[in-house]
Design a protein around this nucleic acid. Sequence first.
DNA 1: ATGCAAAGTTGCGTTTACTGCAAGCTTTCG
DNA 2: CGAAAGCTTGCAGTAAACGCAACTTTGCAT
Lengths: 207, 207
Amino acid sequence: MHEGEAGLRERKKRRTREQIAAAALELFSARGYHATTVADIAAAAEVSERTVFSYFPSKEDVLFADHLSLEQGLAEALDGRPPGTPALDVLREFVVENLSRFDEQARIRWQIVRGDELLLAHQRARQAALGELIARAIAADLGERPDDLRPQLVTAAVIAAFTATYEHRFRARSRTASRAQAVAVVDEAIEFLRGGLDAIRAYPRPY
Amino acid sequence: MHEGEAGLRERKKRRTREQIAAAALELFSARGYHATTVADIAAAAEVSERTVFSYFPSKEDVLFADHLSLEQGLAEALDGRPPGTPALDVLREFVVENLSRFDEQARIRWQIVRGDELLLAHQRARQAALGELIARAIAADLGERPDDLRPQLVTAAVIAAFTATYEHRFRARSRTASRAQAVAVVDEAIEFLRGGLDAIRAYPRPY
DNA sequence: ATGCAAAGTTGCGTTTACTGCAAGCTTTCG
DNA sequence: CGAAAGCTTGCAGTAAACGCAACTTTGCAT
């Protein structure tokens, strides 16, 4: 298992996974999510229906296939930050750096997700998963537990900022100016958080 | 159709609805959500399986049957506030007033929901529905659109505060002191929000 | 009160997501 | 090369959810 070279097996698996995800995205985009059956996806990706479920636990997970790498990237950025660096700073940088990853594929996914209550719920669940990572880091900064109030508040606001930036970018009419706009949105969100944290820093903890 | 008196039809419908919800909650609590089929619920409530689906669009909606009234209550409180009253004040009062509604039934539901990723996602979706109401009110306060950044940020934080309070109450060891604790949590959350809002009040809006 | 219309209930059939199992094929490695 | 491990697939089965048509109950007007 030499790390550098991926075996044939590994490569095939990755390719199949991508085929399934790509075929699914195309079909969802063309016919809509609900009008596309798993059988359709399997046929388009030239695998059996059963195989689709061996790669993805559910149909919804096919749509959100690459959220995993985003999650891993964020985890690394947060866990690997130099001691003393505030989590908020890492988050700001991470969001700004990953703006370019909100590319064409993400735009298509957004078109599919935005209209569907069920898919929006699933997306929120994904965001909540990110939230747990963030809460852990913020809690460490504050010397509290991840499920205490302050980490939860800050985390929720961070997610909201993330989401707002994300949606903002897809709503933006002028594509060229949108990156600067997005950074401004992020900065304002961070400002909001700092203000809020300052306001409760001296607050007693009666619970 | 004299408003004051509910006809036999209406009363029967309400009773059936409650029977289904109650039977379901009991079964979910005893055997777990996934181990309980809709057929089980129908049998316990003494209606046909098909009827369950005529009352509730999905199995999950049976579990969250009474979220609707909470939603309506909040909508009334927000829409009916005297002009000039900040939405944050209404929210604080609403949360504190409704603490007592987090009663035995809600505690059981929490036990069912807490362990299941799917149900947690559904609950988050419900919370997001509340969020839209809140965002509208906050946006009106700020003179912005509901999907602008600031309303979204404040809304997310409000939801987080709501959730933290909710969970806090069910985690609380000492039942007697928990109400005072909960109020303290709410107050700190509101303080956080005010601090954040102050911090960005003078902020330019470059987008 | 009686009969008609509207509303509610039910059974039946179907689709679709998803799971377990066992048999067959492919890659890997000794 | 040949055994072992890993993948893919078909098959059978479960459960949620929907549409439809028949049947029952309720409300209402005469």
